[in-house]
Each structure stands twice: as structure tokens, then as C-alpha cells.
């Protein structure tokens, strides 16, 4: 049955060690192409490490990863990273203005991003276009997060990895970003993988959900699994007994 499903990213017995410490344990599973998959689990479950593997910033110690049915090692790393966009919770900014940061992906590829294009991107993520020339040091946490998302979108990735991008946003901003991501998914068919600590968000936004704990993929399936988990540990996590 699995063979008929279009898979954006597939993991086959993937393990990752940081020195002697095992971060990911034998992960096997896939993210469906064109869908939104939410990734939940307690801190230290290995979720961000999984994203770094998908973006090619690190390689698995054991096992294989395929992106669009092609072995990840067969890709040119720069091509892979433009195709599999990554927006991290830390929302690292380079010193300079918002515009400097937005045009960065194009500059790296030897191309230009016009001010008009940058302004459109800003409005898309719910920021005022007048912010373009503002220094990133003057931005709030939420604004930085939105600029980080906009910057990732500049590459027009086919797969978008979002790590806790709404955790520092207020409710209105969070709703805006959720709508934007859903629109990107529906209109452009971009596959979204979204790490969140907000279980309601995981259920509402996600088509599928992965639950990870201590480096293992404990349970996965339609996001409704969080309403009636089969695994005892997941049940405890959903009920807030495991943080």
C-alpha cells in the first residue's frame, strides 16, 4: 500500500549519534507529499535533529533518507537545501536590515531580489512593508520569526520544515502564520513538516502527525491519533504527564 503513496521524505532505519550519544533511534517512516505533517513530542525527542537531517546540515550515522524518491546523498547539497527549506525556532538573523536578510537566499544563488518582491513577501507573512529597511536588531521575537519564514520562502522550496515557528507569536500573529502556511500548502502544493508543542495546532493544521520521544518515532498516522493515542507513552504525553 505504501508504494502507491507519494512520499516527500522517507526514512529507512535512520539513526544519528552526536559523538557517543544516540539522538535518533532507528527511525522508519515517511512524510506524504503535498500534505502537512505535524511533529510533536517532549523536548529532547530529536525533532530538530530530524529536520537538520532533512535539510542536509548533518547526515545519518546509520540508515537512508530519500527526498522525492531520490537518495539524499545523490543531491547536490545546495540544490537539496533550496528545495527543502528550513525555518528554525532560533530565527537567526544576519546583521543588517530586514531587506538584507530577505535577499540573502537570492544573493547566495547569485541572483537579485527586488525591493518590490521583498515587500510582497513581508505582507504575505503579516508584516508591514515599511519594515523592509528596519535593522533586525530592532525587531521583536515574533517579527524575527516572520522574517525568518519569509526568508525561507524566497527559495520557493517544495518541502518546508518549520521548527516551532509560532511559539513566540501572539494569538493573532499565530493565526496569520497558520493561514499563510495552509495557503502555501493548498495553493502551491508545498509539503509542510511542522514541529509544534501546541497539540491543538498539531491536530487542526496537520493532515498527519508524528509523535517522537527520546529519539524514537513512537506513533504516527492521521493527526486525529492525538485524540485517541494507542501507545501508553503518547497517552501520557497528550495528557501532559510527560513534558
Amino acid at each position: 500500500m505504501n508504494q502507491q503513496i507519494d512520499k516527500a521524505i522517507e526514512f529507512s532505519q535512520v539513526s544519528y549519534y552526536d559523538g557517543s550519544l544516540q539522538i535518533l533511534k532507528n527511525i522508519t517512516g515517511f512524510f506524504r507529499k503535498g500534505k502537512i505533517t505535524t511533529l510533536v513530542g517532549p523536548s529532547g525527542a530529536g525533532k530538530t535533529t530530524l529536520f537538520r537531517l532533512c535539510n542536509g546540515l548533518i547526515s545519518p550515522t546509520q540508515g537512508n533518507i530519500t527526498v522525492n524518491a531520490k537518495d539524499i546523498n545523490q543531491y547536490d547539497p545546495t540544490e537539496l537545501r533550496r528545495n527543502v527549506g528550513l525555518a528554525l525556532q532560533s530565527a537567526t538573523m544576519l546583521s543588517g536590515t530586514v531587506y538584507d536578510n530577505l535577499k540573502l537566499p537570492r544573493t547566495l544563488a547569485g541572483e537579485m531580489l527586488t525591493e518590490e518582491e521583498a515587500e510582497i513577501l513581508l505582507t504575505k507573512v503579516g508584516l508591514d512593508k515599511d519594515m523592509l529597511k528596519r535593522k533586525v536588531t530592532d525587531l521583536s521575537g515574533g517579527q524575527r520569526q516572520k522574517v525568518s519564514i519569509a526568508r525561507t520562502l524566497v527559495n520557493r522550496p517544495e518541502i518546508l520544515l518549520l521548527d516551532e515557528i509560532t511559539s513566540s507569536l501572539d494569538r493573532v500573529s499565530r493565526d496569520d502564520i497558520e493561514k499563510l502556511i495552509e495557503r502555501i500548502n493548498k495553493e502551491f502544493g508545498v509539503t509542510i513538516i511542522w514541529i509544534t508543542h501546541n497539540l491543538n495546532q498539531a491536530i487542526q493544521i496537520g493532515d498527519d502527525t508524528w509523535v517522537m520521544m527520546k529519539g524514537e518515532l513512537v506513533e504516527y498516522g492521521p493527526s486525529s491519533l492525538l485524540l485517541e493515542p494507542k501507545d501508553q507513552r503518547v497517552k501520557q504525553f497528550v495528557e501532559g504527564e510527560i513534558k
Binding site: 546540515l57 540544490e79 537545501r81 533550496r82 544576519l94 547566495l108 525561507t152
Partner: peptide, 16 residues
């Protein structure tokens, strides 16, 4: 380190 990895994650080369 974070900035270096940010540039790599956006498709930059090691030199960039």
C-alpha cells in the same frame, strides 16, 4: 556557528 549553518541551510556554499 548559527549564522554559518543558516547560510548553508539556505543553499549557500561553505565559502559563502
Amino acid at each position: 556557528r548559527d549564522e554559518t549553518e543558516l547560510i548553508l541551510s539556505l543553499g549557500g556554499t561553505p565559502k559563502q
